[in-house]
Design a protein around this nucleic acid. Structure first.
Lengths: 150, 150
DNA sequence: CCATACTGATTGACGTGTCAACTAGCCTGA
DNA sequence: TCAGGCTAGTTGACACGTCAATCAGTATGG
């Protein structure tokens, strides 16, 4: 039996899904930016660093935690460093290594952002769905991740 | 009663959702690029033009159909024009106006891309989910869209 | 010992997005 | 009729992402 193509209804569902996720991401990002001056990427980096021992991590480790490519992280850290949110420092022990360190300014920005961000997630995502739908989302995400591998 | 923040489980669901959608988008985009040399944006533009009368549309109309900002479209059309996928032409009637026109090359690229793209959507999305999950996705997308307005 | 491979990290080029500013032409009302 | 505002479209600046190349330092096997 030949592999069939999606029906137009399935395609509609696909497009709605991907466009909705995209739109939601955009709205959340816009709010975060407007209310706190941080991008979602900034937030992820600051969150991870603020939970790390001594508020510092090696770039590779940080990249693994937030599932970014090292190159992406490097570019992003450059921008964050320019804004004073983090700083970089050499690592004595393996001179290839380095540390990304949360600055006080970065820490303050993160703490100022967390409640607005979580509130927005609640308003725009959690409260938009029924408990059953929230459960369904979890299962759907898992199934999709399973399919694309990891 | 104060507005509460999301529970850690709800937050986990949110992150899984947004990261999964992002990952899926990335995988699909990568495949499309590898197999056809087109980006999702290219595909959306080519699809819309190929369905339009005379394979041409005014930029503003095209932007409405695919829900892009005019500026985004203008930048994208510039890149597509450089690659010969579309061309631009003045519009006699309102000299502000313009037309975006599908070239033969653009049409060929689109037709070569459609089956691989639809196949990928089926494999990575439709077949990853049960029929019930697919239905749930439709409802969830609708609910989220409703919440963010439009 | 040292060529070679591997690892951590950065860089450059370029596609993609957003925002604000700008150009140019159309339209409307005092 | 013409000043102002509106509309179509483009542009520039800059953030963000990916890919391939590069660089420097570590490790290793012959």
């Amino acid at each position: 039996m030949p592999r069939r193509l999606p029906t137009s209804e399935q395609l509609r569902t696909w497009r709605d899904f991907i466009e909705t996720a995209e739109a939601l991401r955009g709205v959340l990002a816009g709010r975060l930016q407007a209310e706190t001056g941080l991008s979602p990427g900034d937030y992820a980096v600051l969150l991870t660093l603020s939970e790390a021992t001594d508020r510092r991590l090696r770039p590779s480790d940080l990249a693994v935690v937030i599932s970014w490519e090292r190159s992406r992280l490097s570019h992003h850290l450059g921008r964050m460093e320019r804004r004073g949110l983090i700083r970089r420092e050499g690592y004595s022990g393996d001179s290839r290594g380095a540390f990304v360190i949360l600055t006080d300014e970065g820490s303050a920005a993160f703490h100022a952002a967390t409640v607005p961000h979580l509130t927005a997630v609640r308003e725009l995502f959690v409260e938009a769905l029924t408990p059953a739908q929230l459960d369904a989302v979890a299962g759907i995400s898992a199934a999709l991740r399973e399919r694309i591998g990891r």
